[in-house]
């Protein structure tokens, strides 16, 4: 991946919540066709970095570059419009809406003609297309008229991942995508991520499940207390050294 151009880049990004410094001078580069692992202990700043990259929070300082151009997202809408899709940890779906409504949330299909111009939605088509899109990326859900609150945790996660993968055009940010999933489902998700990478997307993969990280990532960035403490090819880690870097017990790089 070293040979490829940088797709999305955070340069010297800092972000505080009140007196808590969540990110301090963080530099991260993501290449097209690459899965970048983002690991760290709780409170290391992973989710904050995702929210900065997805446009939820503007950084206090530092810059974001997409395909070499500096970008300032005023809202997630801007980032979505540029092909940056995000799976947020636990909070990305509207539980009272149907699966189809969630997959198309913010991108509703409207009916043709005057009704569409008045804002009337093509609900049936959306529901059908939603199931199709989810199936395309390897997520099978039965009965699209179900609301998300009717689904199990694993099914919800599958819908959320499916939605993000289906819509992503450039960058896919995945915050704990294998949460709530059984072993077999988790493997399926990893396959979905590989497929996305093979389509040329740049993927950031956040997880506490280190075997998954080692299994799927091309490169790993380790955050600790808001700072990047290590950024190296996956081949330079094994389970033990990765854990040691995360916890800080292993200060020196091998």
């Amino acid at each position: 991946m070293a040979g490829q151009a940088v797709l999305y880049e955070a340069v010297n990004v800092s972000k505080s919540y009140g007196s808590v410094e969540a990110l301090i001078d963080v530099n991260v580069q993501l290449h097209a066709g690459e899965v970048l692992g983002l690991v760290g202990d709780n409170g290391a700043g992973k989710s904050t970095l995702v929210k900065v990259l997805s446009g939820v929070h503007p950084p206090d300082s530092g810059k974001l570059f997409l395909e070499g151009r500096e970008r300032r997202w005023s809202s997630p809408h801007d980032a979505l419009a540029e092909g940056i899709e995000t799976l947020y940890q636990d909070t990305g779906l509207a539980p009272h809406l149907t699966i189809g409504a969630n997959v198309f949330l913010g991108r509703e299909l409207l009916r043709p003609g005057l009704l569409g111009r008045l804002g009337f939605m093509a609900q049936r088509e959306m529901e059908r297309a939603a199931l199709h899109e989810l199936a395309q990326v390897g997520v099978e859900v039965k009965g699209s008229r179900k609301t998300v609150s009717d689904l199990s945790g694993g099914q919800r996660q599958a819908v959320a991942i499916g939605r993000a993968v289906a819509w992503a055009r450039k960058v896919l940010l995945l915050d704990e995508p294998t949460n709530h999933l059984g072993a077999r489902q988790a493997l399926e998700v990893l396959n979905v991520i590989r497929a996305a990478r093979d389509r040329g997307l740049g993927v950031i993969f956040i997880s506490h499940t280190l075997p998954h990280v080692l299994q799927i990532c091309d490169r790993i960035v380790v955050l600790r207390l808001g700072r990047v403490v290590r950024d190296a090819s996956t081949s330079e880690f094994d389970a033990e050294s990765l854990l040691g870097t995360i916890t800080g017990l292993l200060e020196k790089s091998p």
């Binding site: 997630p76 809408h77 979505l80 947020y88 949330l105 913010g106």
Partner: peptide, 12 residues
């Protein structure tokens, strides 16, 4: 239903 989800989906 979920204000954050709405915002994250690009809704103003």
């Amino acid at each position: 239903s979920n204000e954050f989800a709405a915002r994250a989906a690009g809704i103003n």
